[in-house]
Design a protein around this nucleic acid. Structure first.
Lengths: 268, 268
DNA sequence: CTCATTTGGGTACAGCGTACTCAGTGGCTG
DNA sequence: CAGCCACTGAGTACGCTGTACCCAAATGAG
């Protein structure tokens, strides 16, 4: 860490993370240093007025409160009471900042230790899914950033370890265990994504859900009367009501499906 | 449609769709007109040099080929050989353009008519999921735009109608049927989202998956040796290999889970 | 004390969506 | 057939974004 930014950093321009929501900027080593690094200060020069921790925490607060779109480097600097470019002394770019926000937020809801994971794998999956769901609800911006190149920080590894602990009695092999985790996570992410898109749209447009659908009603009714959509028209009125816990429904089916496999494995 | 843009349009500024990925801009009526409208030309004035259809088709092409980030109004205009602001004669804003792209692309993979939907609901769900997956793979930008306020265009309604047709023999009630559709869609969206994030990251950084993980290896190995992650360390090496069809695994479990419910309903 | 080194932050640039504005076109009316 | 005016096309400009580049102030080692 002699030089401030390694070679690769200097050639990353606006093109590197075109939409500004891709984590990292190709400089994995730098992100890893920030995540796992000891953060020792150099001996010379004035002492830093900010800390990486404070920057990341503030960034998370802004994103939670007003969405990822509101989190600009200028805005973040203003929130911290410093100049915009000062942030770049602590973070190579916005991509790496997102990496750090990710790892910080993913670590929050994890059980203190493995002994708190339920012994029953059904309950473990249920709890894992609901915990993940609640976390995504608390930080909807998580679903907007590309995690594919997120370095495996301590939180990510701990989450995986705890998940595997909960599934230990299923009697499945390695790829299947990973498959269970991927499936549950995919379902939860997909579900919450739709959900948070709705609340985000309501906030941005100032138009409630009910008002929105009321606006569509005349077009819908015209479409229904056309006779082209008989099965939609035949649905009972409560089909789209909110008196039904769709999340629990889907999760319950998923766990049922896992159980079929587990029983099959146990029989042989 | 006497006035060019209704009242609400004029007060939508950059604040309306802050991140540029929210469909619509609060003016639902305008989007609905564009989707369902007849598109009659006014009697006076020069005839338009562009068509809405050509604009939307070109926009889809650009987004498919280079990602949603590459789709700017300037870029789109250049592609069409016109001035940037000319586009705003046809589309109120980028949000509505996304709406139109959405409906166009969602309509592509739909079966020609209901008679092509499999009679067996298991096969119908399987086909629905794979069709949706393939469509999301072909147009990964679908997962980046907020569909919550997407108006129900003809394609969306047809997709719902066909889905309900495939589930007709499950013997479930209204909310449950919607629950099945939501669950399958959530799973597929979550799965493809992770998948396409990976390919997008590889394209943007020019770094392959293998190279990326190879970079992380030393940090991972150090973490494994720490003993803090025994269950991850105990996983067989093929757990993360690509010799396992994770999509089919998750979808199979899901269908199994639905079957448990269907059998339970049939017994009573 | 001197000076290499580090931090803070101002300025500048390319790119974005789009509001505003005006020139030119062409069908309807007199 | 002339003239009007609704309409289309498009240039210019504004505020926003991330960040490259640069210089002044601060600090500890020699």
């Amino acid at each position: 860490m002699r030089e401030a930014y390694p070679e690769a950093m200097t050639k990353s321009g606006p093109a590197a993370a075109a939409d500004g929501t891709t984590t990292g900027s190709g400089d994995i080593a730098r992100s890893l240093e920030l995540l796992w690094g000891t953060g020792e200060r150099p001996s010379r020069g004035p002492r830093p007025g900010l800390t990486l921790d404070r920057i990341v925490a503030t960034a998370v607060d802004v994103a939670d409160a007003e969405g990822l779109a509101a989190l600009s480097m200028r805005r973040l600097a203003a929130e911290l009471g410093t100049g915009t470019m000062s942030l770049y002394r602590y973070v190579p770019g916005k991509g790496e900042l997102l990496d750090l926000m990710l790892d910080r937020v993913q670590g929050e809801p994890l059980a203190a230790d493995a002994s708190q994971v339920p012994d029953d794998w059904r309950r473990a999956i249920d709890e894992m899914a609901r915990t993940y769901r609640d976390n995504l609800r608390a930080h909807p911006w998580l679903l907007k950033i590309n995690q594919a190149r997120t370095v495996l920080g301590p939180s990510a590894l701990r989450g995986m370890e705890l998940a595997l602990t909960g599934l230990k009695d299923m009697g499945l092999d390695g790829p299947e265990l990973i498959g269970v985790i991927i499936t549950v996570n995919s379902y939860v992410e997909g579900f919450v994504r739709t959900e948070s898109h709705a609340t985000e749209a309501a906030r941005e447009t100032g138009l409630s859900h009910e008002a929105f659908w009321e606006n569509q009603r005349p077009y819908l009714e015209r479409a229904m009367l056309s006779g082209a959509y008989p099965r939609i028209a035949a649905l009972p009125h409560d089909a789209f009501g909110d008196g039904f816990d769709h999340f629990a429904f889907g999760l319950g089916r998923l766990v049922d499906g896992f159980e079929v496999l587990v029983r099959e494995r146990a029989r042989k």
